[in-house]
Design a protein around this nucleic acid. Structure first.
Length: 434
RNA sequence: GGAGAGAUGGCUGAGUGGUUUAAGGCGCACGCCUGGAAAGCGUGAGUACCUAAACAGUACCGGGGGUUCGAAUCCCCCUCUCUCCUCCA
């Protein structure tokens, strides 16, 4: 959530930054400020009446104590109608606040000054590249062909069980998926100082709102119903990412500064309705309703937010380097950024069978946008309560990593060579048909 | 699913309509004392809103509503937590 004080005091700056996103959200500012103005005006008025009421009530209390009942009764008469005025004004203030917050909670974060200005993915600057597209002596097969010939995934039966957009990993496919998860968690906890957590895969509405999923992306979530009780729909949701439970671990807390930086990593499946998304319903693993991911979360002081973001991207890149995969890092331009983010790097891994780059990681600094929504603060050395920066990054997403891995390391005979780092996890150096 | 208990500040814990500005204790910070420390004594400290700013004002005792001049306290609704029973991996 944006800071209403900043909107009030630096209106033109906020308007300019919002307009760079290209979503037209800056047009909502006038309305927000009008409601805010009404709220503050009403508040000033009602507080005067409340001060008066408190003063008189105290006097009545004193008179009662001295058994001066007659005088007390007269005072009561005097203040009888104040209550009605207060009630009316209170209602006015509450309504103005509600209207203000309804808009405010749907406004996206402001892009950081270092973010490239642009309209779409076309305008995303490339930051760096690792390795290069590998040359093959044969036409690289797609992951779909490889998964079928090596029996890594049973696409048809997954559809039978759940529907399109779901995967049934089988045999070495299931083992490879598990090996990758284990490898990622070990890497980040042992080499990159993250603390492993294993969160619930179902979260409540508050957690979804805290990270900015709700109310804007309510249509992309899977809502859960308890048994036959239809009234329970809307209470709980399948996690779209581990960011939802993990970033909320310290919601409504005031952290001691000494406890920061906090670094968590967590495995979770990710459930996405992908309503209206391009690529949904096409065969394969690129866009699915459920995929595995190891997520990285940091809660840090504002001073260190951006250097921690750089480190986080390097942590995610390390995964691809160790697996010997070609990738590029891009910086999302103002028009292509996510709702809660102030700055985002995407890592795209090369998939030779697809002949395209696949997004396997998105690392963002949301600054205090989420912290404000979830009322998470830290107490600094001066004893003041401040909002921390909250960062999230994929380290990395699994289904697409799986795709890049099998497509990149496929051999002329149709087998998959397993990178050395992964061999102890898979307990095999290659995957071949029978 | 059944029965019961509970939710008060950083923690603990009193408070059943008004000099409560939420007692007391623990912990914390600072000071006195001391060669230094402990103990002891003293002082201080919640969160947010509002305001140009304030030692001004307002709100906050799980959440929402009601009664009243006045609610932590009385009434209604809701949420959550804990204990026991039942069932279950």
């Amino acid at each position: 959530m944006l800071d209403i004080k900043q909107i009030r005091e630096q209106t033109e700056y906020v308007r300019e930054r919002l307009s760079l996103r290209g979503g037209g959200d800056e047009k909502k500012l006038e309305e927000v400020m009008a409601h805010d103005e009404a709220r503050r005006k009403g508040l000033a008025e009602v507080e005067q009446f409340k001060a008066l009421r408190n003063r008189v009530s105290k006097e009545i209390g004193a008179l009662m104590g001295q058994k001066k009942v007659q005088e007390a009764e007269e005072k009561k008469k005097e203040t009888r109608d104040i209550g009605d005025k207060i009630a009316a004004l209170d209602k006015l203030v509450a309504e103005a606040e509600e209207k203000r917050d309804e808009i405010l909670i749907r406004l996206p974060n402001l892009p950081h000054s270092s973010v490239a200005i642009g309209k779409s993915a076309e305008d995303n600057p490339e930051i760096r590249v690792f390795s290069q597209k590998q040359a093959y002596t044969f036409k690289p097969r797609t992951h779909i062909e490889l998964c079928e010939s090596l029996k890594l995934i049973d696409f048809n039966r997954a559809t039978k069980i759940s529907g399109s957009g779901f995967l049934l990993y089988t045999h070495w496919g299931a083992k490879l998926e598990r090996a990758l998860i284990q490898f990622l968690l070990d890497l980040h906890t042992e080499q990159h100082q993250y603390v492993e957590v294993s969160p619930p895969f179902i979260v409540n509405r508050e957690s979804m709102t805290g990270v900015g999923q709700f109310p804007k992306f309510l249509d992309q979530a899977y809502a859960v119903q308890e048994g036959l009780d239809g009234s329970t729909v809307g209470k709980l949701y399948l996690v779209p990412t581990a960011e939802a439970p993990v970033a909320n671990i310290h919601r409504d807390e005031i952290l001691p500064e000494a406890q920061m930086p906090i670094r968590y990593c967590a495995y979770s499946p990710c459930f996405r309705a992908e309503a209206g998304a391009a690529g949904l319903g096409t065969r394969g693993m690129i866009r699915v309703h459920q995929f595995d991911k190891v997520e990285l979360i940091k809660i840090v002081t504002p001073e260190t937010g951006y250097e921690e973001l750089e480190k986080m991207v390097l942590n995610a890149e390390k995964v691809l380097q160790l697996l010997d995969l070609h990738y590029r890092v891009i910086n999302l331009c103002t028009g292509d950024m996510g709702f809660a983010s102030a700055k985002t790097y995407d890592i795209e891994v090369w998939a030779p069978g697809q002949n395209q780059y696949l997004e396997v990681s998105s690392c963002s600094n949301c600054e205090d946008f989420q912290a404000r929504r979830m009322n998470l603060k830290f107490k600094n050395s001066q004893g003041e309560n401040k909002y921390p920066h909250i960062l999230n990054g994929s380290g990395t997403a699994l289904a697409r990593l799986f795709v890049a891995l099998v497509e990149t390391h496929q051999q002329p005979d149709g087998s998959i060579k397993i990178p050395p780092i992964l061999q102890p996890y898979l307990k095999a150096d290659s995957i071949r048909a029978n």
